[in-house]
C-alpha cells in the first residue's frame, strides 16, 4: 500500500523531470548554463525566447505548419477510413478477418523503411515542399490504425438501429449523417486525436519531402537545429523551442487524455 502511494509521485517525476530541466534551461543565460555554481550578474533571461520567436522563419510558423498538416491529414484519414470501416463491419466474417489481419500487419510495419519509395513518389509527382501533399502519405499510413478502431466502433453498434432507419427510409448517406456518425463520435474523437498526434510528430517523411525552411514541420525544424553540429548546438534557444513546441501537445493531452487512452486500449482489446 505504501509502495502504491509513492509510485505516483515517482511516475510524475520520471515523466516530467526532463521537461522541467528544459524549462529551467530556457530561462538561463548562457553563462549560467556553462557555470551554474558561479556568481553571475545576470542569471535569468528571456533572450532565448526572443531569439526563437524572432528567428527567420519565426518559430510559430513551424507550429502552424504542423497544425495544418495534422488537421488536414486527420480529415483525409477520416474521409477514407469511415466508409472503409463501415464496410468492414458489414462484410462476412471470413473476408473481414483476412482484411483485419492485413491491417494489423501494416500497423506493425516500421514505416520508416518506406521513406525512400515515398521520396521517389514525391519527386516524380512534384509533391515535395507541399504540406497539402504531405497529408496524403500521412493519411495512408494512418489507415490501418484508423480503420481498425472505427471498425470496432461500428461493429459495437446495435444493428437494429440501422435496420429501423432503413425501414424509415433513410439512404446510406442519411444513415451516416443522422445515426452512424453521431453514435460513433467517441471513437471518431479518439481516432482523430491519435492520427493528429502521429502527423504532428512524424519525422522521416517530413524530413525527406520538405526542404523549404518556411514549410518545415515542428519535428524537422527541431532536428535541423541539432543537425548544425554536435558540439555547438544552441541549447538555450533550443530549450526555449522545446518548451514552446511542447505546450500545445501538453494542452492537447490534458484535454483529450480519456479518448486517447480509450482509443489505444480498444485497439488493444480487440486486436
Amino acid at each position: 500500500m505504501k509502495m502504491n502511494r509513492s509510485i505516483i509521485p515517482l511516475l510524475i517525476i520520471w515523466s516530467l523531470a526532463p521537461l522541467v530541466w528544459q524549462l529551467y534551461t530556457s530561462f538561463c543565460t548562457d553563462q549560467a548554463l556553462v557555470m551554474p555554481f558561479a556568481e553571475h550578474a545576470q542569471r535569468w533571461t528571456l533572450a532565448h525566447y526572443q531569439s526563437v520567436l524572432n528567428s527567420d522563419p519565426p518559430f510559430l510558423n513551424y507550429l502552424f505548419n504542423s497544425l495544418f498538416a495534422g488537421v488536414l491529414s486527420t480529415l483525409l484519414t477520416l474521409i477514407l477510413a469511415l466508409p472503409a470501416s463501415y464496410s468492414l463491419s458489414k462484410l462476412n466474417q471470413r473476408t473481414a478477418t483476412l482484411i483485419k489481419a492485413l491491417l494489423i500487419g501494416c500497423a506493425l510495419f516500421p514505416y520508416v523503411l518506406l521513406f525512400l519509395a515515398l521520396l521517389e513518389v514525391a519527386r516524380f509527382l512534384q509533391l515535395g515542399n507541399s504540406l497539402i501533399a504531405l497529408s496524403i502519405p500521412y493519411a495512408a499510413l494512418s489507415q490501418p490504425l484508423a480503420v481498425l478502431l472505427l471498425t470496432n466502433a461500428f461493429a459495437d453498434l446495435p444493428t437494429e438501429l440501422e435496420d429501423a432507419a432503413r425501414v424509415e427510409g433513410l439512404t446510406l448517406l442519411q444513415r451516416f449523417r443522422w445515426i452512424l456518425l453521431p453514435l460513433i463520435a467517441p471513437a471518431i474523437a479518439s481516432t482523430s486525436i491519435l492520427v493528429f498526434l502521429f502527423s504532428w510528430n512524424e519525422y522521416p517523411i517530413a524530413l525527406t519531402w520538405i526542404s523549404d525552411s518556411s514549410k518545415l514541420t515542428l519535428p524537422v525544424a527541431m532536428a535541423r537545429i541539432a543537425g548544425s553540429s554536435i558540439h555547438s548546438v544552441p541549447y538555450g534557444p533550443y530549450a526555449a523551442a522545446t518548451v514552446l513546441g511542447s505546450i500545445p501537445l501538453i494542452l492537447l493531452v490534458m484535454a483529450f487524455q480519456k479518448p486517447i487512452v480509450s482509443g489505444l486500449t480498444s485497439g488493444a482489446v480487440k486486436g
Binding site: W21, N201, Y203, M222, A223, A226, T242
Partner: peptide
C-alpha cells in the same frame, strides 16, 4: 505524445 526529435535534442 511529444515528438521524439524534440526530446532527443533535450
Amino acid at each position: 505524445a511529444l515528438p521524439t526529435t524534440v526530446m532527443a535534442l533535450g
